[in-house]
């Protein structure tokens, strides 16, 4: 099958799925191996980036998703009547940053780093599905361990957790 045609099929699948589609599902449908599907999707991602479209292709871990371009969010809200989501509070952002860089991590570790209680921030992040419990630490009390979700990656435009910039210490302030 020609590459152009395979891309068209993959595009149709992404449209129907809405959710991120794993590369291996695309490979299965097209009857090609996963590496070939991966490079096909990367080509398609570039093609989308070059064209002045309202949609773009994003990668989240090993899956691809069709989403609208962020610069047109305002028009989508105008059309749907939706309101813009409230940005996260600073407490939540700090907590989320600590979890993102140290996962899996316990509440005690987070509180040690921030110097304050984090129950509320953790509850909000769980509710928003940005973090989740990923297990329990084998230590007295078996404290819960937290990690980030795929929604976290998507919400912050990250393809995978390694896309986070290195934690750097800027001198002074």
């Amino acid at each position: 099958m020609e590459e152009q045609q395979m891309m068209a099929i993959a595009e149709a699948i992404l449209f129907i799925a809405g959710d991120p589609v794993p590369v291996r599902s695309i490979a299965e449908v097209l009857d090609i191996d996963v590496d070939a599907a991966q490079s096909l999707m990367e080509k398609m991602l570039e093609a989308y980036a070059l064209q002045p479209r309202g949609l773009q292709l994003i990668r989240i871990n090993d899956a691809y998703q069709l989403v609208t371009r962020p610069e047109y969010g305002e028009y989508i809200r105008k059309f749907t009547g939706a309101t813009k989501e409230q940005p996260l509070s600073r407490a939540c952002l700090e907590t989320l940053a600590i979890i993102a860089y140290n996962q899996p991590v316990t509440k005690a570790d987070i509180e040690q780093l921030r110097g304050v209680k984090c129950d509320h921030a953790i509850a909000v992040l769980l509710e928003k599905n940005l973090i989740r419990e990923v297990g329990r630490l084998d230590a007295p009390g078996k404290p819960k361990l937290y990690g980030t979700t795929e929604l976290f990656l998507k919400s912050f435009g990250l393809s995978d957790i390694n896309d986070l910039p290195p934690l750097e210490q800027q001198q002074g302030s």
């Binding site: 799925a17 998703q65 962020p70 305002e74 813009k84 940005p87 952002l93 435009g157 986070l164 934690l167």
Partner: peptide, 30 residues
């Protein structure tokens, strides 16, 4: 303090990303 500042800055970075990417929408499965 140095540790805390790192995460505080990372939180700021996340905030800026959020302001951009919360403008991105996807559709429900068909």
């Amino acid at each position: 303090l140095k540790q805390y500042k790192k995460y505080k800055d990372a939180g700021e970075w996340l905030h800026e990303r959020y302001m951009v990417y919360s403008n991105m929408y996807s559709k429900l499965p068909e």
